[in-house]
């Protein structure tokens, strides 16, 4: 199941040039870019691991893209995203985040129903990938 979260996630994956264009757009707006990765892409997992430090004073897209490339190489079978942080007054939050790398095979999620008192149903989204321990998810990408 293809994970759709973050900006443009319903579009086909962006090419490198398109990613660079987005980075350029963020820099032009004065947003600071950072690269993050995870192997737990649960929709409620807001805190992905940081790859290096946020790049507050990088003024050219190639500098940011260098980190994207390095992170992709190191975590080829993880989700990698580029986030743009808007530091302007009154906003001070993420302006966009863009998934730039995803594992070859995404096993997806299942819905767990839990019956509680009075026949109420509680729902949980369960990620198949998280059945494996941290770091062993999305291995090789061929046999899952």
């Amino acid at each position: 199941m293809r994970i759709t979260q973050g900006t443009f996630s319903f579009l086909p994956d962006l090419t490198d040039d398109e990613i660079k264009a987005q980075i350029r757009y963020a820099i032009a707006n004065g947003w600071a870019l950072a690269v993050e990765y995870t192997d737990d892409p649960h929709p409620r997992n807001s805190y992905w691991e940081m790859w290096d430090l946020p790049m507050f004073d990088v003024v050219d897209a190639s500098g940011v893209f260098l980190e994207v490339t390095r992170c992709r190489e190191a975590f080829a079978n993880h989700y990698v995203k580029v986030t743009a942080y808007d530091p302007s007054h009154c906003r001070q939050t993420t302006a966009f985040d863009l998934i730039v790398n995803r594992p070859a095979i995404e096993p997806g999620f299942r819905l767990d129903r839990q019956e509680v008192s009075d026949r109420q149903i509680r729902y949980t989204v369960h990620s198949y990938a998280s059945e494996q321990p941290h770091g062993e998810r999305y291995r090789s990408g061929s046999s899952q």
Binding site: R2, L66, E73, V100, R102, E106
Partner: peptide, 15 residues
């Protein structure tokens, strides 16, 4: 292509 799941859309490009 939008439908082709297993294809790796991101190739790692070594600068």
């Amino acid at each position: 292509e939008p439908g082709s799941e297993p294809a790796r859309p991101f190739s790692i490009r070594r600068d």
